[in-house]
Each structure stands twice: as C-alpha cells, then as structure tokens.
C-alpha cells in the first residue's frame, strides 16, 4: 500500500513541470496599438474586462488632442493661432489653453531653453516635413527674432480661453509637450476604468502606471543614444512615473558631412550643442517629463542638473558626448548601468 502511494506521489511530481509550463503561457496582459501624434502608441495593461474599452477611449482621446494641437491641419487650434499671429486673438479649448499655459511655465523655468514658439525655426530647418536642409545664417537670424514665449498672450475669463501671438510670423509648435500631455490623459482614462497597472508607450515616452504584480517596480531601459533603437545602456526601477528621453539621435540628417539633429536651441537657432547625447526625465506627469527633457537637453549637464536637483519629485539621467552617465542623487540606487562602454559617474 505504502509503496503504491509512493509511486502515485512520484507520478504527480513528474506531471508538475507540465503544469508550470501551462501557467507560463497564460495571457495576463492586454495590448493595443495605433499610430497617433506622428508616432506609434502602444498600451499594455493588465487583462481586465474593461481593457479593450479603455484603450479605445484612450485612442480617440489622443486623436482629439492631436486634432487640436497639430501645426499641420487647418482645422487645428494651433494652426489657427499661428495663422493669426500678429493679427488677432483666438478662442481655444480648455485643453489647448492648459497645455500652452504649462508650456509657458516650463519656458520660464528653463530660462527659454524650452520654448513653444520655436515653430518658425522648426519649419525653416524642415523638421516638420521631410524636406530637411541647413538654412542660410540670415534666415536663421531673422526667424530667431520671432522665437519668444513672452510674446504669447494667454487669457482666461471664466470658461473662455484665448491666446494671441503678438508678432506676425510667430508660430507655436507643441511637439515638445503634447505627447506628454496625451500620456497623462491616457493614464487618467485607465484609472477611470479601474485599471491600475500597465505601460503606455507614446513613441518612446513611457508612462508606467502603478507597479507590476505584487508591487514589483517596472524596469525601464534607457536608450543607448549611439545604438539602434531598442538598445539600452541602463535600467531604471520605478513605479507610477512618466519617463521621457530627449536626444539628438531621435531625428537628424547629414549635410556636407555634418550631422544636424532636431532639438533646436531657441537662443542660437541651430541644433543644440550642449555636449549631451540625451536626457531622460522621470516625474509624476508625462507633460512635465516631456517639456523638461527638451529644455534640459538644451541647457546641458551643469545647468540642467542644477535645475532638476532644485525640483522636488523630478529626477534625471544625463548621457554626455564622452559616454558618461550622470543621474540625480535621489535615483542613484534605482539606476543600473548595463552597458560597459559607458561610465557611471556616481555622486561622491
């Protein structure tokens, strides 16, 4: 009897690995994707009966944001604002007003290193189209006088929101902030549907919602700016944060043997040459991370580090041209360098 029991136990034990494999294959996540804001948007959330509905709602909300804030579509509010620059004030939706208001706040915070009125220069260099070229110095000089966020007037009277660009030829471009805002809206929609964990990826802007199962933090790779997309140089462990990286490698072109990237310094009119290859900002909100990653990239390591260290709840990873990685004090232990071609400059 006893021996038969022993054999039975063994048979069960033998079968166990099979069970373990079954479980591994179970679908725990729901993934949806779409192309919006000129990029690929991928949402991966815990499989929940509302997941599909929530993702549909997110995509239509992002589409709505895009329609209001694009510079290309003649029906957009920003197109309308730009078309009437130096002419008249425009009535805006609360959405667009809110993003413009925040954009101006980050312009102030970064001393103009981030500037939503960069539009004329983006257009001149062709970064809004496929027609990229190095413009003549005089054209840059001329357009540079139009880049000034202080000439963007914003007014809010009860439920009426208006804006006006003071000078003819000025143009707002929300390329450095709208994706971040869209990410925040996506997160809000997930939470409204009771979905507490997941990752929203808007063309590389990551909104990590909650944690993984059992409260384990997400592991987010930081792009190696010198290698193909998808290659990371280090890993950040975090929960409930928006992670946005800005780097020259994202979009650039070569002319006469020189590489020109898409992050234009509002002070010079040329692609920023701050010595950084990339900046990653980690904060509670996508909008904050998005705007600051652009601004801090232009500010450079020293000024940028000083600014971020002065802000509570906002952290950063800097990658410099000489392959050094610097992080803010608070996240030293959450960041792990995985690519030995770079050196991790820890605080002493």
């Amino acid at each position: 009897m006893l021996k038969n029991f022993f054999i039975l136990v063994l048979v069960v034990v033998l079968a166990l690995p099979g069970c373990a494999m079954e479980k591994q294959g179970e679908e725990k996540n729901y993934t949806a994707r779409d192309e919006l804001l000129g990029t690929e948007v991928i949402i991966t959330v815990e499989a929940n009966k509302e997941a599909s509905e929530a993702c549909d709602e997110i995509f239509s909300r992002i589409k709505q944001i895009e329609e209001k804030m694009t510079t290309r579509n003649p029906n957009s509010e920003i197109f309308n604002l730009n078309a009437n620059a130096g002419n008249k004030e425009i009535t805006l939706s609360k959405d667009t007003y809110h993003v413009l208001k925040e954009a101006v706040a980050f312009s102030n915070m970064t001393g103009g290193a981030f500037d939503p009125t960069i539009g004329p220069l983006v257009k001149l260099w062709g970064f809004d189209s496929r027609d990229l070229k190095v413009p003549p110095d005089e054209s840059i000089e001329r357009k540079l006088t139009l880049v000034d966020y202080r000439l963007l007037e914003l007014e809010n009277n009860k439920e009426t929101f208006t804006a006006m660009l003071q000078r003819d030829g000025q143009a707002v471009d929300l390329g450095g902030i709208a994706k971040g805002y869209a990410g925040d809206e996506a997160k809000r929609i997930l939470l409204n549907h009771g979905i507490k964990r997941g990752i929203i990826n808007l063309g590389g802007n990551i909104i990590a919602v909650g944690t993984k199962e059992d409260g384990i933090p997400w592991r987010i790779g930081i792009q190696n700016p010198m290698a193909p997309r998808g290659t990371f140089l280090g890993i950040l462990e975090l929960a409930d944060k928006a992670v946005v990286t800005s780097g020259g490698y994202e979009r650039s072109f070569v002319a006469a043997g020189k590489r020109y990237h898409h992050i234009i310094d509002p002070q010079t009119g040329y692609p920023s040459e701050s010595g950084l290859l990339s900046v990653t900002i980690i904060s509670e909100r996508g909008l904050v991370s998005d705007a600051l990653s652009t601004g801090v990239f232009v500010m450079g390591l020293h000024k940028g580090m000083e600014l971020i260290e002065s802000l509570k709840g906002i952290e950063a990873v800097f990658v410099t041209g000489d392959k050094k990685v610097f992080v803010t004090k608070e996240i030293q232990d959450m960041f792990q360098l995985t690519d030995s071609k770079f050196s991790y400059e820890k605080h002493k």
């Binding site: 990752i199 990826n201 592991r219 987010i220 930081i222 792009q223 998808g230 990371f232 890993i235 946005v244």
Partner: peptide
C-alpha cells in the same frame, strides 16, 4: 523603422529583462 513605407523590423526575444524602453 521605416516610417514612410510603414515598415518595422524587430528582433524579438528576452531583451535583458526590461518592461519597456524610453527613447
């Protein structure tokens, strides 16, 4: 990625244990 031709190639497999990459 080739945006104009709407083409993307990916090497799939375990990528060093990260959940996503910020680029």
């Amino acid at each position: 990625v080739c945006i104009p031709n709407r083409l993307k190639i990916v090497i799939e497999g375990q990528s060093g244990n990260v959940d996503d990459i910020a680029y």
